[in-house]
C-alpha cells in the first residue's frame, strides 16, 4: 500500500438527516404519494386556469385579476400539499408501525425530523415549476407577469417551510394520521378562509377596508400574502409599500421551525404522551 493510500481518510458515514431525506424523498416520489398529489394539483390548476381564461375572454374579469387569482391559487394549493405531506410524516409512520424501528437507532431525533422536513418541502419547487407556465400563458405578455413571477414564488417559498412544519408538528403530536390531518386542515382553513373573504372585500370595495380588517390580514400569514400579491399585481405597488405585508409570512416560518427543530423534534416519542427521555452527555 502506498503512502498516499495510508493517508487517505476512512470513508465517513453520511449524516442521518441526509439518509432519512433520501429515503423519504424516494418514498414520496417513487412510492407515488407525491406524484398523485402533483397530478391532482396540475388538474386543479388547469381547470382553474381554463375557467379564468374563458371568463377573461368574455371580458368578465380584467387580466390582472385573472393573473392574481391564478397565482394565489397556485401558491395556496402548493402550501396545502406541503402541509398534508408534513402531516403524514410522523403519525403516518406511527400507523404503519415503522417509527419504532427508526427510534430504536442511535440517531438524533432532530436529524430525523430535518430529513423528513426537507423531503416534505420537496413538493414545493415541483408545484412552482408546474404553476409558472400557467402564469406566463395567462398573462399574455402583459407586464403583470413580472410581479407575479417575483412575488408568487417569494411568498410561497417563505410560507412552504411554515406549512410543512405545521403539518409535521401536528403529526408529531398526534397518535393517528386522522387526527394529524384534521388538525392541519383545520388550521389551514382557519387561515385561508378569512384571507379569502378579506380578499373578496378588498377586490370589491377596495379602499373601504377598515383598520381592523387590515390588522387581521396583517397577522394572518395567508391574509398578508394575499394582500401583498394583490398590492403588487393589481396596484403595481413599490416594494417599500409591500414590506409590511411580509411581516407575518416571515415570522410564521421562524416560529414554526424553531418549535419544530428545538422542541418538538428532539422530544419525538413512539407514542404521544410518553415522557421525554433524560439523556446525559457521554
Amino acid at each position: 500500500m502506498s503512502l498516499a493510500d495510508d493517508r487517505s481518510p476512512a470513508p465517513r458515514a453520511a449524516p442521518v438527516w441526509r439518509i432519512v431525506f433520501w429515503r423519504e424523498l424516494r418514498d414520496h416520489w417513487v412510492g407515488g404519494k407525491a406524484l398523485v398529489m402533483i397530478l391532482i394539483y396540475t388538474l386543479l390548476l388547469g381547470i382553474y386556469a381554463y375557467l379564468f381564461a374563458s371568463n377573461s375572454e368574455l371580458q368578465l374579469l380584467p387580466l390582472k385579476e385573472v393573473v392574481l387569482e391564478i397565482v394565489k391559487a397556485a401558491v395556496f394549493v402548493g402550501l396545502f400539499i406541503c402541509l398534508i405531506v408534513g402531516a403524514d410524516s410522523v403519525s403516518g409512520e406511527r400507523e404503519r408501525a415503522t417509527l419504532e424501528g427508526l427510534l430504536l437507532t442511535p440517531t438524533s431525533r432532530r436529524q430525523i425530523i430535518v430529513g423528513k422536513f426537507l423531503s416534505a418541502l420537496s413538493l414545493w419547487p415541483a408545484t412552482l415549476m408546474i404553476a409558472i407556465p400557467y402564469w406566463v400563458v395567462l398573462s399574455k405578455g402583459d407586464p403583470v407577469l413580472r410581479p407575479a413571477v417575483l412575488w408568487g414564488p417569494v411568498m410561497g417559498t417563505l410560507l412552504a417551510p411554515a406549512f410543512a412544519g405545521i403539518g409535521m408538528l401536528a403529526s408529531i403530536w398526534s397518535n393517528s394520521n386522522k387526527a394529524s390531518m384534521l388538525v392541519s386542515i383545520g388550521l389551514y382553513l382557519l387561515m385561508i378562509l378569512p384571507s379569502e373573504y378579506s380578499g373578496l372585500a378588498t377586490t370589491t370595495v377596495g379602499a373601504q377596508s377598515t383598520g381592523l380588517s387590515d390588522l387581521f390580514q396583517l397577522v394572518n400569514p395567508l391574509g398578508a400574502s394575499s394582500r401583498l400579491l394583490h398590492e403588487s399585481i393589481m396596484a403595481d405597488a413599490p416594494s417599500s409599500r409591500l414590506w409590511l405585508w411580509m411581516t407575518s409570512p416571515i415570522l410564521l416560518p421562524a416560529i414554526v421551525l424553531a418549535v419544530l427543530f428545538v422542541y418538538a423534534g428532539p422530544s419525538l416519542q413512539l407514542e404521544v404522551g410518553m415522557r421525554r427521555l433524560r439523556v446525559r452527555p457521554t
Binding site: R23, G31, A97, L104
Partner: peptide, 17 residues
C-alpha cells in the same frame, strides 16, 4: 441503542424498498 437489536411485536416495512 448502539448495543441492542430489537424486533418489535408489530413492525411495518416500507413499501418501496
Amino acid at each position: 441503542r448502539r448495543r441492542i437489536g430489537v424486533l418489535p411485536e408489530s413492525f411495518g416495512l416500507p413499501k418501496q424498498m
